[in-house]
């Protein structure tokens, strides 16, 4: 392109090419500040973490230096049953909460989509925004209030007015379930609103035609609405998976990972390993493994669900 213009205007070749070069530079001048800062706060730390993951970094004993350690941190990460246990707890957390959120979200979305009263729909849509915008720390605080075993509202409600003494946060399995319940409470609205938006993309004439064809809402869902829902479902899965891998604030507030290690999800474990056990090198290796897991899961979703959508 440059050469062409130079040929077309040989007399002006120098100033034009200068202007041309400046024009090609302009977008990068606008981009430069943002790219620069994100390189510094997003990319450089990841490189730093990769470096730490192959070095021995002991915060308590930094004077001993940080010698190269090969894959030792990765070996000890995998051999550590606390880490593999935390990964397993996070994956189980995903496996339970995602289907629950999707099923509940789908039901609520279908209700909102088919409602005969548009005003109810707009009220509910605004209300649903509140749980997912809530500060996760505060969600944890609310959980510890309503699930308290001595005066919690939940124990009062499940006893129909007679206080039950279920120790929701003191028992390993129950604490895990309570954490799941709060996750589902906070994020089902997110899935719901995504699905409501997806349902709105179904052309009304197609939906109307099918309503005459069959009375079964399940058939309508499977053959007409589902193809339109798949991109939304994929997005919900990717963002909820990423969220659960990152999940820290709410669980940390509610249980601190306990009792024992029963609610110690992977982010909570790595934070503890780095900042309470001060084993920075291994923690860095573990966080790198976590990053790989997230990328693999996202790619799986995209491949699986988008192929389904195209078929």
């Amino acid at each position: 392109m440059l050469a062409e213009q130079q040929r077309a205007q040989p007399a002006l070749s120098l100033p034009v090419s200068k202007r041309e070069r400046r024009q090609r530079l302009t977008p990068w001048l606008f981009l430069f500040p943002g790219i620069g800062v994100l390189l510094a706060v997003g990319i450089y730390p990841v490189i730093y973490a990769l470096w730490a993951s192959v070095h021995k970094v002991d915060l308590v004993n930094l004077a001993a230096g940080t010698p190269f350690d090969g894959a030792q941190n990765y070996f000890s990460a995998f051999l550590n049953s606390l880490f593999t246990g935390a990964v397993a707890r996070s994956l189980l957390f995903l496996a339970i909460s995602l289907p629950l959120e999707l099923a509940l979200g789908m039901l609520i979305a279908l209700y909102l989509h088919g409602t005969v009263l548009p005003r109810v729909r707009s009220v509910v849509r605004v209300v649903l925004v509140i749980p997912m915008a809530m500060t996760p720390v505060v969600v944890g605080l609310i959980g510890s209030l309503v699930f308290n075993n001595q005066f919690g509202l939940v124990n009062y409600l499940i006893g129909f007015g007679h206080m039950q003494s279920v120790d929701w946060l003191g028992n390993s399995q129950l604490a895990y379930l309570t954490t799941l319940a709060l996750q589902v409470w906070q994020w089902t609205p997110f899935v719901t609103l995504i699905l409501v938006a997806s349902l709105a993309t179904v052309p009304p004439e197609i939906e109307e035609a099918l309503r005459l064809e069959t009375k079964s809402w399940l058939k309508r869902l499977r053959y007409v609405q589902l193809p339109f829902l798949l991109p939304g479902i994929t997005a919900a899965l990717i963002f909820q998976t990423a969220y659960i891998v990152k999940l820290f604030d709410m669980v940390y507030t509610l249980t601190g990972g306990g009792p024992g290690v029963s609610t110690e999800l992977v982010s909570i474990y790595i934070e503890r390993n780095a900042f309470r056990a001060f084993d920075i090198g291994t923690a860095a290796a573990q966080s790198v493994i976590l990053l790989v897991i997230t990328i693999v899961l996202s790619n799986l979703y995209i491949r699986f669900f988008y192929v389904e959508a195209e078929a």
């Binding site: 450089y44 990841v46 730490a52 780095a274 900042f275 920075i280 860095a284 976590l290």
Partner: peptide
């Protein structure tokens, strides 16, 4: 990005 991967280098 996963915060727990960044928070370690940030701290250092």
């Amino acid at each position: 990005m996963i915060p727990v991967i960044l928070v370690i280098p940030y701290f250092l």
